[in-house]
Amino acid sequence: MTEYKLVVVGAGGVGKSALTIQLIQNHFVDEYDPTIEDSYRKQVVIDGETCLLDILDTAGQEEYSAMRDQYMRTGEGFLCVFAINNTKSFEDIHHYREQIKRVKDSEDVPMVLVGNKCDLPSRTVDTKQAQDLARSYGIPFIETSAKTRQGVDDAFYTLVREIRKHKEKMSKDGKKKKKKSKTKCVIM
């Protein structure tokens, strides 16, 4: 069974824990209790493949930012979460993405942009803004509501699919490099 290491990042209060708990335990946590770091595991079937999701729910508070490099190193894919009623959390996505790329030393890291709290009427981040940002990053965008469960499975499952595509691409690139290195030079 394939294991996928997913990391949920975003500013404090955007609903990272609520999304994760909704996926794992099928219930909505409405009281806000700032996370330092929590880890969850769940076995699911995605596109006919049974897999184990190892999900790291991270601290959004700035005082825990020193811990970010460590979990970013171990993560295979990242859910970059903002709240649709919090423009600052949307603007912060850029910083999370840049930090992930720096730590992973790669421009090509599996990510999904997630606009959470889409059940709320007080939207300050337009869907088109988020779609445009995701398009500019070359990553999928999904709106979710941890409260109603809308888009929750889709967000995590899409990230797994992005990781699969990335692994497939990397193995193809690896095979191309191996083929090239088999060419021999004969000096007579």
Rank of each mutant, 00 (worst) to 15 (best):
T2C: 06
T2I: 04
E3R: 03
E3H: 05
Y4M: 15
Y4L: 14
K5L: 01
K5Q: 05
L6Y: 04
L6P: 03
L6C: 08
V7Y: 02
V8S: 01
V8W: 00
V9P: 07
V9W: 14
V9E: 11
G10A: 15
G10Y: 01
A11I: 05
A11E: 15
G12K: 04
G12I: 01
G12M: 02
G13S: 09
G13C: 04
V14D: 15
V14P: 00
G15H: 02
G15V: 03
G15C: 00
G15E: 01
K16L: 15
K16A: 15
K16E: 04
K16M: 15
A18W: 00
L19Y: 15
L19F: 14
T20R: 00
T20F: 00
I21L: 15
I21C: 08
I21S: 04
Q22G: 14
Q22C: 04
L23A: 13
I24D: 00
I24V: 06
I24W: 00
Q25W: 02
N26P: 01
N26V: 02
N26Y: 04
N26M: 06
H27N: 08
H27R: 11
H27E: 06
F28C: 05
F28Q: 01
F28M: 05
V29A: 08
D30G: 06
D30P: 08
E31F: 04
Y32M: 09
Y32L: 04
Y32I: 04
D33H: 01
P34K: 14
P34N: 06
P34A: 13
T35K: 15
T35P: 04
I36K: 00
I36W: 00
D38C: 00
D38F: 00
D38S: 00
D38K: 00
D38Q: 00
D38V: 00
S39F: 03
S39K: 00
Y40S: 02
Y40Q: 00
R41C: 00
K42S: 04
K42R: 09
K42W: 01
Q43L: 08
V44D: 05
V44E: 04
V45D: 11
I46D: 11
I46N: 05
D47P: 03
D47K: 05
D47Q: 05
E49I: 04
E49S: 10
T50W: 06
T50V: 11
C51M: 11
L52R: 06
L52S: 02
L52H: 03
L53N: 14
D54R: 00
D54M: 00
I55L: 05
I55C: 13
I55R: 00
I55G: 11
L56F: 06
D57M: 00
D57Y: 00
T58L: 03
T58Q: 02
T58H: 04
T58V: 11
A59H: 01
Q61W: 03
Q61F: 05
Q61D: 04
E63Y: 02
E63P: 05
E63A: 02
Y64A: 09
A66L: 12
M67G: 02
M67V: 06
M67A: 05
M67Q: 12
D69H: 10
Q70W: 14
M72S: 08
M72A: 11
M72Y: 13
R73N: 12
T74A: 10
T74D: 12
G75E: 02
G75M: 06
G75L: 04
G75D: 02
E76R: 14
E76D: 15
E76Y: 14
G77L: 13
F78C: 04
F78D: 00
F78V: 12
L79K: 01
L79F: 08
L79I: 14
L79T: 01
C80P: 01
V81Y: 12
V81F: 04
V81Q: 09
F82I: 10
F82L: 09
A83K: 13
A83D: 15
I84S: 15
I84W: 13
I84K: 13
I84V: 13
I84A: 14
I84C: 14
N85I: 13
N86P: 09
N86L: 01
T87A: 10
T87C: 02
S89L: 03
F90C: 11
F90W: 06
E91D: 08
E91V: 02
D92T: 07
D92N: 11
I93N: 03
H94Q: 07
H95I: 07
H95F: 14
Y96G: 01
R97N: 06
E98P: 03
Q99I: 14
I100T: 03
I100H: 01
I100W: 07
K101S: 11
K101R: 08
R102W: 07
R102L: 11
R102I: 11
V103I: 14
V103H: 13
V103F: 15
K104F: 13
K104W: 09
K104M: 08
D105G: 15
D105R: 10
D105E: 10
D105M: 15
S106R: 13
S106P: 03
E107P: 12
E107L: 12
E107F: 13
P110R: 03
P110W: 00
P110H: 03
P110N: 09
M111D: 02
M111A: 01
V112R: 00
V112Q: 01
L113Q: 05
L113S: 01
L113I: 10
L113E: 02
V114N: 00
V114Y: 12
G115K: 02
G115Y: 12
G115H: 04
N116Y: 00
K117Q: 13
K117S: 14
D119T: 15
D119L: 14
L120I: 07
L120S: 12
L120E: 14
P121N: 13
P121S: 13
P121D: 14
S122M: 10
S122T: 11
R123F: 08
R123G: 13
T124W: 08
T124L: 08
T124C: 11
T124I: 08
T124E: 13
V125P: 09
V125F: 09
V125A: 10
D126A: 06
D126F: 07
D126S: 09
T127L: 07
T127E: 06
K128N: 06
Q129M: 09
Q129N: 04
Q129G: 13
A130C: 11
A130L: 10
A130N: 07
Q131N: 12
Q131A: 07
D132T: 05
L133Q: 04
A134N: 02
A134K: 04
R135D: 14
R135T: 09
S136K: 06
S136L: 12
S136A: 12
Y137C: 07
Y137K: 05
Y137V: 09
G138V: 02
G138D: 09
G138K: 02
I139D: 03
I139A: 08
I139Y: 10
F141N: 10
I142S: 10
E143K: 03
T144F: 15
S145W: 05
S145D: 12
T148N: 12
T148S: 05
R149M: 10
Q150N: 04
G151C: 07
G151P: 14
G151T: 12
V152P: 13
V152K: 13
V152N: 08
D153Q: 10
D154Y: 06
D154H: 08
D154C: 05
A155D: 05
Y157P: 08
T158R: 05
T158S: 07
T158K: 14
L159V: 11
L159F: 01
L159A: 05
V160I: 13
V160R: 05
V160E: 11
E162Q: 06
E162G: 08
I163G: 09
I163V: 04
K165M: 07
K165W: 08
H166F: 10
K167P: 06
K167R: 04
K167G: 06
K167M: 10
K167S: 09
K167C: 08
E168L: 06
E168V: 11
E168R: 04
K169E: 08
K172M: 12
G174Y: 03
G174S: 09
G174E: 15
G174I: 10
K175L: 11
K175R: 08
K175Y: 11
K175G: 13
K176E: 13
K177S: 07
K177C: 08
K177Y: 10
K177A: 06
K178T: 12
K180T: 12
S181R: 10
K182W: 02
T183G: 07
T183L: 08
T183F: 05
T183E: 11
C185K: 14
C185H: 02
C185E: 13
V186C: 07
V186E: 06
I187Q: 03
M188A: 05
